[in-house]
Design a binder for these strands. Structure first.
Length: 223
DNA sequence: AAAAGTCGCAACCGCTTGAGT
DNA sequence: GACTCAAGCGGTTGCGACTTT
């Protein structure tokens, strides 16, 4: 979809005069210019600095999901789909974490893509598997993801990266989510915690990502 | 040709978390 | 410890575009 001002009731505004709805080209230009000029300024200051009648949240979202030069546009490639499916099996609806593994794709992109395409495919596959379940026992990872420790919420991890980049003086602090490899360390850690198990060796993140779909399913009974 | 249904995606909403006071 | 604020997240909505009937 385009950012046409006609959509989403762009002319609407709240009682405080804060604009809502689709962004116009002028607004996009103002926001882009502001980010270029001021870089990693606080989002709460962006609407003022940019001269926009938008809330800071809206500005942040617009930049992160649409305007950032780091965003890769266009349809998802086969290997991207494959990776998303595998990561979703592993992480569940942790879109920001998944996005961190797929360069140029935002969490929102991936979430939308999953909800409109991949999720449905997965459902279809699952039902087909069920039909064939009499012949072969398939241990499924879904629908619940791995239990994620409360202190592993994406925001924490992302925020620390945000601060790091800020300290480096990079304007990329307002870029696409950039979850680095170490942010998957807890997954690997969890998998390795079962080091007594015969299978433990197989469950490194790398192995999981490289294995066939049905190979890496982990049983969640009692988890 | 037109109505109905579906899809894709931008944007919003509400909640959670962490930092600062 | 309680409160406030900023930032981030996932879920959901709304609407234009496209497809089907």
């Amino acid at each position: 979809m385009t950012s046409s001002p006609s959509s989403y009731g762009a002319s609407s505004s709240s009682a405080e005069g804060v604009r809502k709805g689709a962004w116009s080209q002028e607004e996009d230009a103002l926001l882009s210019r502001c980010i270029e000029k001021y870089g990693s300024v606080k989002w709460s200051r962006v609407p003022v600095l940019a001269g926009l009648s938008r809330c800071s949240k809206s500005c942040r979202l617009r930049w992160l999901n649409y305007l950032s030069p780091l965003i890769k546009r266009g349809s998802f490639e086969v290997d991207e789909n494959d990776l998303i499916i595998r990561l979703h099996n592993l992480l569940g609806n942790r879109w920001s974490l998944i996005a961190g593994r797929i360069p140029g794709r935002t969490a929102n992109d991936i979430k939308n893509h999953w909800n409109s395409n991949l999720g449905k495919k997965q459902l279809k596959n699952a039902s087909e598997m069920k039909i064939g379940a009499d012949k072969e026992v398939v241990k499924s990872i879904g629908p619940e993801p791995l239990a994620i420790p409360p202190n592993r919420k994406g925001s924490t991890v992302q925020k620390s990266k945000f601060v790091e980049r800020k300290q480096e003086g990079s304007s990329a602090a307002v870029g696409v989510s950039n979850v680095e490899d170490d942010e998957f360390a807890w997954v690997e850690l969890m998998l390795h915690e079962d080091s007594e198990s015969d299978n433990a060796k197989c469950y490194t993140l790398e192995n999981i990502m490289n294995r066939e779909e049905t190979d890496f399913c982990i049983e969640f009974d009692g988890v």
